[in-house]
């Protein structure tokens, strides 16, 4: 137990250091923006990792919840005069409700059937966002009111760097809490054997919905932050490519590794930034890099490094 606690605090401290130290030396707001994007993505990826990496339930439509969170902070303040700070939790509640309602029927499906059903959900959300022009501004999206705290408008990437960094740290701690609890053990158990988990008294259907709802809320918060950072949202936030990117971040960093979620997010946020140097070759390069990474690091970066380290030690 002592060792486990130590591990836990060490990894939290490590994440805190990874947020604070670059924050002290980053030279321009461009870099703060990229940093904030990394933290926001990492937050969504931690949530998805709980579902995909720990509980073993694939979702190819999780960006749907990012979209719900993003449009909650866009639509509620603009059309209903809801304060931005209230729109974020409203998005969380809405995402949780949607996840709860669709979760029970959808999560009975397995493997590719679950993959395509979640994919369908994500695509449907993106289509609604693109088609309900009167509410959402259509395919071109809509602008987002800036967050105001104590009358101060938060628009600097530097501020968002610290806000999203703090949220990431909180999200990480909450995920650790969950994993170290009976619910966490149950959701990890059903990954390996649903039948054994049920025989041990785990209500598998309930646990699946629980973790689906939790991961949806993570995605929703990330979506809200993304919209507030950018000051603008488009339906692409909920699109299939966004969902795929999230899954790739989970797998790349390491399924079942919270720290890996951050690494995976950092990699796939920073890489395309670097690839923009190649202009029209960007897509081609990204595709080839994804293939190479998945072939050579199929267990994910953090688990692979961990294994190498253990092998060297023994």
């Amino acid at each position: 137990m002592a060792r486990f606690l130590a591990n836990r605090w060490i990894s939290l401290a490590l994440v805190a250091a990874l947020i604070v130290l670059p924050g002290l030396i980053l030279p321009s707001s461009y870099y703060f923006r990229v940093g904030a994007l990394v933290f926001i993505s990492a937050l969504a990826v931690i949530g998805l990792n709980l579902l995909l990496g720990f509980a073993g339930q694939v979702s190819l439509g999780h960006a749907g919840f990012v979209g719900i969170g993003a449009y909650a902070v866009a639509i509620l303040p603009a059309r209903f005069d809801v304060p931005v700070l209230l729109a974020v939790p409203a998005g969380m509640v809405l995402s949780a409700l949607v996840a709860f309602v669709i979760g029970r029927p959808i999560l009975r499906l397995k493997g590719h059937f679950l993959a395509v059903a979640t994919l369908g959900f994500g695509v449907l959300v993106a289509m609604v966002l693109a088609n309900e022009v009167g509410w959402t501004g259509g395919p071109d999206g809509m602008s987002v009111k800036r967050l105001e705290i104590f009358g101060e408008r938060i628009r600097q990437p530097r501020d968002w760097y610290w806000i999203s960094g703090t949220l990431l740290l909180i999200g990480m701690a909450i995920a650790q809490n969950l994993l170290a609890s009976p619910t966490g053990r149950a959701l990890r158990a059903l990954h390996d054997s649903e039948i054994a988990a049920r025989v041990a008294g785990v209500d598998v259907a309930r646990i699946k919905v629980t973790v689906f709802v939790i991961s949806a809320v993570y995605a929703s918060v990330a979506g809200s932050c993304l919209a507030l950072l950018n000051g603008h949202v488009t339906p692409d936030a909920a699109g299939f490519l966004q969902s795929v990117e999230m899954v790739t971040m989970v797998v790349l960093g390491g399924m079942g590794s919270l720290f890996g979620s951050i690494i995976g997010a950092a990699f796939l946020v920073i890489l395309p930034q670097a690839l923009t140097l190649f202009h029209e070759y960007e897509h081609l390069m990204l595709g080839i890099l994804i293939i190479l990474i998945m072939i050579f690091l199929r267990d994910g970066i953090v688990p692979t490094l961990h294994r190498l380290l253990m092998e060297r030690r023994s």
Partner: peptide, 8 residues
Amino acid sequence: GGAFAIRG
């Protein structure tokens, strides 16, 4: 990833 590359 392959689809990305082909599209690119």
